[in-house]
């Protein structure tokens, strides 16, 4: 009968209406908040309407402060803003595969090549380099100071007398670490081997707190050196070279990404202004990157 049956359905009807309105609101109104340039830019104070591209990069680049040094200049010159999403190299490449970002800046040559071979990226463009170093407590119980190569150092870690913190996050640094274990010919296992799954800065902080060894890029280490008791124990091994490349994505796979703007960033970051800025970039009186291998 009508009196009864309709109570419920109308109740529902109202809810459905309210719901639809809300859903429409979420998907139509709120994206307006992210119109480029609407957010006040705290660094440059610019208010003009800028195009925004998203750059996925590694924590080692971001933590070093290099991008904060470079990108405001790029934005000022080109009007293109860059949103930096700092993750491990593996995650950055994955974002590139899915098209969640417009461009990637990473440091894992083999993975990069694979990325390009699979058709996701166009080409590697050399940006800068520094090197990986091994750091650890000043007391250096394992005597890493006394060896010349990473391979020898890693063999000493196997004793398990002191802990080693691994990134364990499929990042460029992690890949480098794994390649050295491959050289040693052993799989690191045991209580002494700690897979943190964290970014570079976090791993250095953990190693510092636990008085453990770790492998780090020199850039992040120098940028944080004032906060760390860790000491630089091994550097200069050619096997520990660390090259950063920027890779524009394949426009055919994700045609609606901002490829032109991404290419502008590639051209600029590999261009003369950027080279000078990178070579001059110092933190705590250390040069963090150099553009030697051009």
């Amino acid at each position: 009968m009508e009196f009864q049956g309709n109570f419920k359905s109308a109740h529902r009807q109202i809810l459905v209406t309210i719901f639809s309105v809300i859903v429409i609101c979420i998907f139509s109104c709120t994206p307006a908040r992210d119109v480029p340039g609407e957010e006040p830019d705290d660094t440059s104070g610019e208010t003009q309407q800028n195009v925004v591209i998203k750059l996925a990069t590694t924590t080692s680049v971001d933590n070093s402060g290099l991008l904060n040094h470079l990108l405001p200049v790029f934005t000022a010159e080109t009007g293109i803003e860059v949103d930096v999403i700092a993750v491990g190299t593996g995650a950055a490449l994955e974002m590139g595969r899915k098209g969640d970002v417009d461009i990637v800046l990473v440091h894992a040559p083999e993975a990069e090549q694979e990325f390009i071979d699979e058709g996701f990226g166009l080409a590697r463009h050399y940006v800068a380099q520094n090197e990986f170093v091994i750091v650890g407590p000043g007391s250096d119980p394992l005597g890493i100071r006394n060896v010349r190569t990473a391979e020898e150092a890693f063999s000493l870690f196997l004793s398990g007398d002191l802990q080693f913190i691994s990134r364990g996050d499929n990042s460029g640094t992690h890949k480098k670490e794994l390649s050295i274990w491959e050289l040693v010919g052993e799989t690191p296992e045991g209580d002494w081997y700690i897979e943190s799954g964290q970014g570079m800065g976090a791993v250095l902080t953990i190693a510092d707190q636990m008085e453990a060894y770790t492998l780090t890029d020199s850039g992040t280490y120098y940028s944080m050196v004032n906060h760390l008791d860790l000491v630089l124990l091994l550097l200069g091994d050619p096997a520990l070279e660390n090259i950063y490349s920027i890779i524009p994505l394949n426009p055919e796979l994700h045609p609606d990404l901002l490829h032109d703007e991404a290419m502008e960033l590639v051209n600029w970051i590999t261009g003369p202004t950027s080279i000078d800025l990178i070579n001059d970039y110092e933190v705590n009186t250390h040069r963090l990157f150099n553009v030697a291998n051009r």
């Binding site: 009968m1 009508e2 009196f3 009864q4 309709n6 109570f7």
Partner: peptide
């Protein structure tokens, strides 16, 4: 209060949902 069955008319108007 809704009855399980039956109808209520007020001034001859049935009290169904649209008009309740």
């Amino acid at each position: 209060d809704k009855p399980d069955t039956g109808s209520v008319k007020v001034h001859g108007e049935p009290a169904d949902w649209r008009r309740i």
